[in-house]
Design a protein around this nucleic acid. Structure first.
Lengths: 396, 396
DNA sequence: GAAACTTCTTCCACTTAAAAGCAAAAGTGG
DNA sequence: CCACTTTTGCTTTTAAGTGGAAGAAGTTTC
């Protein structure tokens, strides 16, 4: 049963957004917030109730007179967020207020191609449905690790996603699940997640830096994601930071991503283990046959000098690029997310901060917080549902 | 006599903008363009005529029936654009359609402070008034070479403008001239100028790079200027492009501006002349006692290898920074303006293009024109009038 | 040169959206 | 139980805008 209940005008959109972001509210309060006459609010709320999007939910505490009726989003509203990373996939279900009701996460190589990966996504959705979490689906948001034509809902020449180029992701998923689907870049949806429920609440212009397998950046201008002329804005992993260096997957040399990212860090850590620079990492390598980012974090905590050097050097590279971006973009906030910052934490943050604050002009850095993601690995799925809910709550 | 005739609603704004950007039009055509019923268009046009902002201007050619009445912006509308650069000032008068009716330009050191510089600006305005070009002033747009709090109309900690910090420029000029005044960064107004009447017509997301005494960048997102969280967005002159190098005015080393800008180029050219690397430039130095950017351009034309090397090296530095910005921002167009590109022209452009196209990803560069400014030294004043006309044509 | 057809403008009745006002209902505190 | 508040549904008023009719002004056809 396809659900096609969308509001009919901007007022209704505004009311729905208030209920989504602020939770249930009294009718009187809503009237004050949207600057509409109470009669009008009542009319619009009635229509939304008819559409099944909201419902009455008891009475508010008295403000000295008659108690006001509380309205809330319909408790049966469900959004699905799917975050496809380079090496993992996460699927979450939220209610109308975008609270996560259930979440499944699995390793998954995006290079298996769209059929296999989207098939796995559908399997995970089915599992959540079996748990009784999905009486119906009002919308699905999906992030993929590469550039996307947002309008068409298809990936475009994604470097690390062979077989996905122009694959009709939105159409395929929409047909399969019978609901609106929105496809975006994975970094963009993480930025939206932080904006909705994380470190970037109430900031209109900010950058979200994801350091995972690769490096990417979500750009939020005036409260909404900036995608650029061809949908590839924020692709900072391939900014050149040195005249020479390892050859990157993109064919150039000196790319930021080749110096510091999950993949690069593992490589550097492995060679530090092999060369004997780091006894701690060498032990780990001997134990498990490989070195993970977690191992570098623990080595650092244990006081391993080589691990500390790796993190410092990487933080400096990232800091240099961020300093440039700060001069150019003058953001009001920078949020660091993805697996690497979430594992390495404050030592990495400190190094990045020190470089940015030193290299950019005081006017741009004077009031520039640089913080870690608050949502860590939920940012993507939450942002994805936020994106599709914006769509579903807007008038056609 | 203060003129306070602004439209009363968004429809009127839209009509005024159409008349400004498309010239006089028939009433019927306007009706089609704004998607309003003809009756409504007639009502709004009547009100605008009452306000003195538009007037009837004869009849259009017949489209097969009764001839439609043409309306045009009032021919007595006047906007003033003032472009204060680091070392020069330009003042222009335009009519309502932003055609330049008269322009005056003078050398002027911004470091003389606001009283002297704004005094000179007022003198130039008075001269234009004496020429009969200014029956009245409906608005003034002004650009200054430093960061500006757009909302307040004051410069904020501008590095090269001692004495201007938080000087109430908008208030002072508004009092003096009795009309609305808008204060912005000089690079931003040039970007707006190119967008209105130059290379960037009909492009919504682009970068305008100014290389003059310093280097700056105007950022246009979705058709309007992006200023950043504290008004300093686009300050790319102090992006670090090398680990070492000359100390910049900002206190750091390795700034782009210290490697390539009008000032840096003159310095490098002078030393090339002194060291005997360039006989051509040495001759000029001997003649005039100094080397100008024009001399470098001519040396290059004359086949002087040292001059060519200077331009190549500079182009490469700028290209490297632009390549980073292209990866990050994915613009639909880059426009190069300011005195240096306008003098050095295509050889510089070619070098910059080659670096950008080589270093950025194909998706971002695939459809990315990099072009020279079409307006050269008028971009600033035209953009300034465009900015203030947007304000004057909007409802209060 | 008159008739037939187009197109443009103005006027006016009609629809619709939204605000404003009113009175009943529901609640509080003394 | 009563005076006072607050909420809410209902009605009235106001404003904005649409669409059609009719007349004005041109063009084309015969």
């Amino acid at each position: 049963m396809r659900v096609t209940t969308r509001p009919q005008n901007a007022h209704q959109t505004r009311l729905l957004e208030l209920l989504r972001d602020g939770g249930p509210r009294s009718r009187a309060e809503l009237g004050d917030l949207v600057h509409m006459s109470r009669s009008k609010v009542a009319v619009e709320l009635d229509r939304l109730a008819e559409l099944g999007l909201i419902q009455n939910a008891g009475l508010a505490a008295s403000r000295g007179g008659r108690r006001s009726g509380i309205v809330s989003l319909s408790p049966s509203l469900r959004f699905v967020g799917i975050d496809i990373g380079a090496t993992s996939i996460a699927v979450a279900v939220t209610d109308g207020e975008l609270r996560v009701l259930g979440k499944l996460q699995e390793p998954c190589d995006v290079r298996q191609g769209p059929d296999a990966v989207l098939g796995l996504a559908l399997t995970l959705v089915a599992k959540l449905r079996d748990q009784g979490l999905l009486p119906q689906i009002h919308g699905v948001g999906l992030g993929v690790p590469g550039p996307v034509s947002f309008r068409e809902g298809v990936p475009v020449v994604p470097p690390i996603m062979p077989g996905w180029d122009r694959y009709p992701v939105r159409e395929a998923l929409g047909r399969e699940l019978g609901c609106p689907v929105q496809v975006d870049n994975d970094v963009n949806i993480m930025a939206v997640g932080e904006q909705h429920a994380g470190s970037a609440r109430s900031v209109d212009d900010f950058l979200f830096i994801k350091i995972g397998t690769g490096i990417g950046c979500g750009i939020v201008v005036d409260g909404s994601v900036y995608r650029g002329a061809s949908g590839s804005a924020g692709d900072i992993g391939h900014i050149r930071v040195a005249a020479s260096g390892p050859t990157c997957a993109c064919g150039n040399v000196g790319c930021l991503e080749a110096f510091f990212s999950g993949a690069a860090l593992k490589r550097h850590a492995t060679s530090a283990a092999r060369s004997g620079q780091s006894p701690y990492l060498a032990a780990r390598l001997a134990e498990a046959g490989k070195v993970r980012v977690e191992d570098v974090a623990q080595a650092m905590m244990a006081g391993d000098a080589a691990a500390m050097r790796l993190v410092r050097a990487g933080g400096e590279r990232v800091g240099q690029v961020l300093a440039s971006l700060v001069s150019f973009f003058n953001p009001g906030l920078i949020v660091l997310g993805g697996s690497v910052p979430s594992l390495l934490g404050h030592p990495l943050l400190a190094e990045i901060r020190s470089v940015v604050y030193r290299q950019s002009l005081p006017l741009a850095t004077g009031n520039l917080p640089i913080v870690l993601s608050e949502l860590s690995d939920s940012a993507g799925v939450i942002g994805a549902t936020r994106g599709i809910s914006d769509h579903v709550f807007s008038a056609p």
